[in-house]
Computed example of a mutant assay.
Amino acid sequence: MPDLKLSATEFLQKRRSVPAKTLGLPVPDKAALMPLLTAACRVPDHGKLEPWRFVVLERGAMERLASLARTRAEALGLDDEKSAKGVSQFEMGQLAVVVISSPKASDKIPQIEQLHSASCVCLSLLNAALAAGWGANWLTGWPTYDQTFIQEGFGAVSGESVVGIIHIGSITTPSPERPRPDVASLVTWSSE
């Protein structure tokens, strides 16, 4: 068992997202994706509310969403650069999982804790995909904050929001390394 712990710790210390624009085919099929979604649900969830849900986007849905993003960018009066950035993740994507925060009414569990749980789902899904050998990246962007887009695109209802879109696919090029935090400068030790 200690070797498994060490290997999980090493994975987490070395993990890095793969740029979504470099992800290629093949992508996980339903049989390969379901264990990743199952792993993603193993997060802190006070009150066992399951305050999140998934929308799996396959290639046909990506094309529809790219068109919707273009329409919404025009309606919102976005400049060409911002519009293109919002459209591109759907144009280039082959498979993605939208993690939707879907808070539940609760006198005991504040909505912010439920949102934090949904954020944990995003990171767990990202790590599960990477650990399984897929490339993955967590994206958002202006479409994820546009209520009309998420209602029409993902079937979001009042009170729901998009926490992340996790793109998953085959790694086509090595992921670039980036500077990492100086952990010692971020830690305050308190013993009293």
Rank of each mutant, 00 (worst) to 15 (best):
L57E: 09
P176V: 07
P35G: 05
P143A: 05
L57V: 14
L36V: 04
R16M: 07
V43T: 13
L57S: 02
A39I: 04
A136K: 05
D79S: 07
G77Q: 12
P176E: 13
A61F: 11
G86I: 09
A118R: 08
L186W: 11
F90P: 09
L126V: 08
E10L: 14
L36E: 01
P19F: 00
K14R: 03
A39R: 00
M92G: 03
R53A: 03
E50R: 10
F90I: 08
D182V: 12
D79P: 00
K21T: 07
R72V: 00
L130N: 00
D182G: 05
G153I: 00
G24R: 05
S124V: 07
M34L: 07
G93T: 05
A129P: 01
R178Q: 13
A61Q: 14
R180Q: 15
I100V: 11
R64H: 14
S101Y: 08
V43G: 02
I112K: 13
Q13Y: 09
S119R: 01
A61S: 14
E177M: 15
I165E: 00
A184C: 11
A31R: 13
T22P: 07
A184G: 09
F11C: 05
V87T: 15
P179I: 01
A156Y: 03
E74S: 15
F90Y: 12
S191A: 15
V163R: 04
I171Y: 03
Q13N: 04
L186A: 11
D3W: 00
A69N: 05
L25P: 02
A96K: 03
F149Y: 05
E81T: 08
L125E: 07
L78S: 06
G47K: 11
L23C: 00
S88T: 14
V97E: 11
A131N: 08
A20P: 10
T22H: 02
K104A: 02
